[in-house]
């Protein structure tokens, strides 16, 4: 979401996931009011407010509403501001750009090896646990924010049906 938010505010071409680094740097520099090479939160907020940026027309209404509910600076800084200083240095921007490029590289690798969605860190495993084997345990956070759920806590209590998936 951070990259999409950046596209929205820095007027980048959102159709291409691989925005050139120079374009990214140029866009950020235009927000850098005092020209010190570092983008501060207040510089971003002042400029974003002044230009009253509207979302590109190709965003679905759902994505627009979703993004409208987010603080743009917080969203972008969460991904870019690695040292949590409240500003974005050009080094952080370069690192962010590299991470994005690496991300698409991982997808390419996954597509080539047929391991759908596998990232480099994932073990080579094609099919998951077999019928009859002990179910791997996990502890996950529920969406409703209540207590963490441990799969093995249902052992001896009741069967558990797991529906894995995502929105897309």
């Amino acid at each position: 979401m951070a990259r999409r938010m950046m596209s929205r505010y820095f007027q980048l071409d959102d159709d291409d996931a691989r925005v050139p680094l120079a374009e990214l740097q140029g866009a950020i520099a235009s927000y850098d009011a005092n020209g010190d090479g570092v983008l501060q939160a207040d510089e971003f907020r002042a400029r974003a407010e002044a230009s009253k940026v509207t979302a590109p027309g190709d965003d679905s209404r759902m994505v627009q509403r979703f993004m409208d509910g987010m603080d743009p600076w917080e969203t972008i800084a969460a991904a870019v501001d690695a040292d949590g200083s409240g500003s974005m240095s050009s080094q952080e921007l370069v690192a962010f750009h590299a991470k994005m490029a690496e991300g698409s590289g991982a997808w390419e690798l996954a597509a080539m090896t047929g391991g759908g969605g596998a990232t480099r860190a994932e073990p080579e495993q094609k099919s998951g646990p077999a019928v009859g084997s002990m179910a791997p345990d996990f502890i996950l956070e529920p969406l409703d924010g209540k207590a963490l759920v441990r799969l093995s806590s249902f052992r001896g209590e009741r069967p558990v049906a797991l529906v894995f998936g995502s929105y897309t």
Partner: peptide, 29 residues
Amino acid sequence: LIDDMQNTANNAYHAWPDRLYLIGKDGRV
């Protein structure tokens, strides 16, 4: 439940992009 950003549950169950499991009362698949 939300998988963590290390994709722990997805990796353990090789679930991506979507998959169904039933875990028995005995904790076995």
